[in-house]
Design a protein around this nucleic acid. Structure first.
Length: 362
DNA sequence: CGCAGAATAT
DNA sequence: TATATTCTGC
């Protein structure tokens, strides 16, 4: 009895969900269509997924209730994966969202899904080079999430795109993502009118596109380097709408970490403190010129953002790279030391800085 | 309190 | 690994 009810309910849920997904997928497919050449497989996969779902809600009704997992295997190998990957795109429908969130949470807590209720395509099943696939997919997903901005943007450039690589597409995607970010971040606040609250709900991940990062670096530069610049200042300088201090702070933290590590690759016999300086200097002075760039470039091939970020944009930097002009802007914080900072004693490392600075002020 | 930075979580 | 969140000290 109860079982039946819950079963029914369950089924309806799934059905609803499928419809939703189909719609979403179809929309997505339209979008991918534009990139058909670049993402033939994606297109295919999405198409298959759609078919799979359609079959699911039309044909195999009853089995479905119990046979969800079966479907994932049988309907299309991809189907399950596709769904899996698409789940994160929660469109509207609070209900679905609710359900999915639970799933998410559980999955978060322990990757081992024992809840029979839902579609859990064991991620571990997916062994073929899904790792790559997935990341690619995710990127694509991001892409499709973009408002038409991307589409138009891309279709516009399309002619040249023929020769462009995925990477470049993705870059473009990044840029658009930035726009998107600006839009979506403020929306985080309240989940709509009602009871409100809705526990923590992590913020949308800010994606630091190249543009954004460049802006960040630019601000950093103007402020006198990663060690003197404060998140707030940076944010103000960047003038990016929707960018929060926390985000900048986090990014800055990461940046500093990256800035520090590569230093070890450049064994600078001195003490570690000296190292900081050299390297940091290298980063601050992103001259295309090899001697300095070297420090960074040779150090890390890994990141792709931090090292490369500096060198690949030669045209950008030199133009405003008048380092002498330290826009000392304002703020008590970023005062005096600016000009002399870099040449000042190595002893003044990041940790010391704050105190020194404050001491100077007070 | 707000901010910055480090530490930790996801 | 990249970003978010929390913890601390000022």
């Amino acid at each position: 009895m109860i079982k039946n009810i819950s079963t029914m309910k369950n089924y309806n849920q799934k059905r609803e969900r499928c419809c939703e997904l189909i719609e979403a997928l179809e929309e997505e497919r339209r979008k991918i269509n534009v990139f058909q050449r670049e993402f033939p497989l994606c297109l295919e996969l999405v198409t298959q997924a759609i078919e799979g779902y359609k079959r699911e809600i039309s044909g195999t009704t009853t089995d479905n209730v119990y046979g969800q997992s079966e479907c994932s295997e049988q309907t299309t190998g991809e189907c399950g994966r596709v769904l899996d990957l698409f789940i994160p795109i929660k469109h509207s429908s609070t209900f679905v969202e609710e359900v999915e969130e639970e799933v998410d949470d559980k999955a978060d807590d322990d990757e081992h899904e024992s809840h029979e209720t839902n579609i859990d395509f064991d991620e571990t099943n997916i062994d073929f080079d899904d790792k790559n696939m997935k990341s690619e997919w995710l990127k694509s997903v991001q892409l499709w999430n973009q408002p038409d901005a991307v589409v138009s943007n891309n279709s516009q450039d399309r002619s040249q795109e023929t020769t462009e690589t995925l990477v470049e597409l993705i870059k473009r995607n990044d840029e658009a993502a930035e726009k998107n970010n600006n839009i979506q971040s403020p929306e985080t606040t309240s989940g709509g009118g009602g009871g409100g609250g809705r526990r923590g709900q992590r913020k949308h991940r800010r994606c630091w596109s190249q543009e954004l990062h460049r802006s960040f670096l630019n601000a950093l530069k103007q402020l006198g380097g990663p060690h003197v610049a404060t998140p707030k200042q940076i944010r103000e300088l960047m003038k990016v709408d929707g960018l929060t201090n926390d985000e900048v702070k986090s990014h800055l933290q990461k940046y500093r970490l990256h800035a520090r590590r590569p230093s070890q690759t450049t064994p600078n016999n001195r003490n570690s403190q000296t190292q900081h300086f050299v390297v940091v200097g290298g980063i601050w002075v992103p001259q295309t010129n090899h001697s300095t760039a070297n420090v960074v470039a040779s150090g890390e091939t890994t990141t792709g953002i931090y090292g490369p970020m500096v060198s690949p944009l030669p045209s950008e930097w030199p133009s405003h790279s008048n380092f002498g002009r330290m826009i000392s802007e304002d703020r008590s914080r970023s005062c005096s030391n600016k000009g002399i900072f870099r040449c000042s004693s190595p002893a003044m490392s990041s940790s010391t800085r704050t105190k020194t600075k404050d001491a100077n002020i007070s």
